[in-house]
Design a protein around this nucleic acid. Structure first.
Lengths: 269, 269
DNA sequence: ACGAAAGTATCGTACAGCGATACTTGGTCC
DNA sequence: GGACCAAGTATCGCTGTACGATACTTTCGT
């Protein structure tokens, strides 16, 4: 089981808002830009790398990095080889999770679900064309990097994404499919629009969505959507297991009812 | 079991660096300041609240919030009642965890440890006078908010903190004790400097540290330190259980060797 | 010992961001 | 239901912040 790396896909491409909005403080955008440089990094970065990646001059990168460093959002690498994200980021992680009402509502139910299901249980939230994992309750045999908070996956080829699409209009579904950069993350990833629509329809009929090895080899996942009071899908809960232990049919028979029940509890407050 | 709330203690008080450093970009500091406002919030904030808390004018808050919103680091609350942190924060969480070598090294060992220990296992990292949880492998019966990534606790009164202090010089220990704002988080919290030093000494002798209900009622925790190659303590691993299921002695006898072994593996690469 | 690359410091100028103020919207109280 | 209050949005001229070019120092690798 090798997991996809990087933030390659999904992270909205510096969402091209900017222009000449008089309220927009570009120094802040630069700062976030610098922090986002690390999305595609697999090692500490030098000032010049940061400057180049962010399309800014060395001086600008210097000032931004300097400032972020003072504040604890960027640190020198342990071996003094370059810059890495700083620990202060985690404070904001906590704030985000605490103050997100869906996370707050869903979490106890998720913990409960994890008790009856000895597999990995996840909570993911939508951000544009992707899902971001906000809570992950690991099973025994997982590698850590496959279960990071903040990990994101595309909507079009994941169980959670399809569970959400099942609650959208056909137009919305089509728009997501169109705008997604559909890549074969694994050989099993479904990228054909027609086939995706079929899987969504299947999810509508079953009340849960299924994905087999579409993001991670050997992984089976089912999901159900979490809805706003008005019925709009906001995220999903996932149950994920290994195909070395389960076949698809028995996995679904065993866990789909539990996932459905959990989502039901969360959705009705 | 009620957990302490807020970021009340611990978060370095906007670490009074600033002055007239010519490289310091204050617009960035303002942005982070705004995001940090949420550390003490338990509900969505209005613009005026943000402005007031950050000691800046309404206009400034407006611009900063506007910009952060465009970028996805701040969102409107679901009910449009105020502002909350935005989901983009989680992307940086992932980067931090991925790029932190200690987290990377420790995680597989932690997962392994969790397998043999049916209690909660945590990895925490030092930031000044506090420890921040970077990875948390829950046990069955935990409440979600007690196990958030990004949660922080003081060094002086936690098992992890004492495990780290056990690897510092007496001077360093004293400095931490002195500079810490020592509050009785629970009735059992040890705040007396002399008593803390004794606990540190005890940890030095045992090779692990112990804390009983000092942060969370009913909780027992032991910890061992994680060290840099040079021997400086960088963080700790914790095993936490409930006093309704264990007495201190049997908890230590059972888990201290496992915690020690795990830390040993991590520390020798 | 040398050269290259990374990080740090300096400085005059222009325009980005400043803050005061005024306008719009929406919710609440009597 | 109308009046009020607070929240959010928009505008504008001035000033001081942040800009980028450049030069200096330090740390590597060979």
């Amino acid at each position: 089981m090798r997991y996809i790396q990087k933030g390659e896909y999904g992270v909205p491409p510096s969402t091209s808002i900017d222009e000449n909005d008089p309220l927009f403080v570009q120094a802040i955008a630069r700062a976030m830009q610098v922090l986002s440089t690390f999305h595609d990094a697999s090692k500490p970065l030098t000032l010049n790398e940061i400057a180049a990646a962010g399309g800014m001059g060395k001086s600008a990168a210097q000032r931004v990095v300097h400032t972020l460093r003072q504040l604890g959002y960027v640190q020198r690498d342990a071996d003094d080889r370059g810059y890495v994200p700083g620990i202060r980021i985690l404070d904001h992680t906590r704030d985000y999770l605490r103050l997100n009402p869906l996370v707050a509502r869903a979490s106890p139910v998720l913990m409960e679900l994890r008790r009856s299901v000895r597999e990995r249980v996840d909570l993911s939230l939508r951000d544009g064309l992707r899902l971001i994992y906000a809570a992950r309750l690991q099973s025994k045999r997982e590698t850590f990097f496959a279960t990071l908070v903040g990990q994101s996956v595309p909507i079009y080829c994941t169980s959670g994404g399809r569970a959400m699409m099942a609650h959208m209009s056909d137009d919305e579904v089509d728009e997501i499919i169109e705008r997604s950069e559909r890549r074969e993350i694994t050989p099993k990833t479904i990228t054909d629009p027609q086939a995706i629509r079929a899987k969504v329809q299947e999810a509508r009929e079953n009340g849960y969505a299924l994905a087999l090895e579409e993001v991670l080899q050997g992984e089976i996942a089912i999901a159900t959507a979490l809805l706003s009071p008005e019925g709009r899908p906001l995220g999903a809960i996932h149950i994920a297991g290994s195909l070395s232990e389960w076949d698809a049919e028995s996995f679904c028979r065993r866990f789909a009812p539990l996932a459905g029940e959990a989502a039901g509890v969360i959705n009705r407050f």
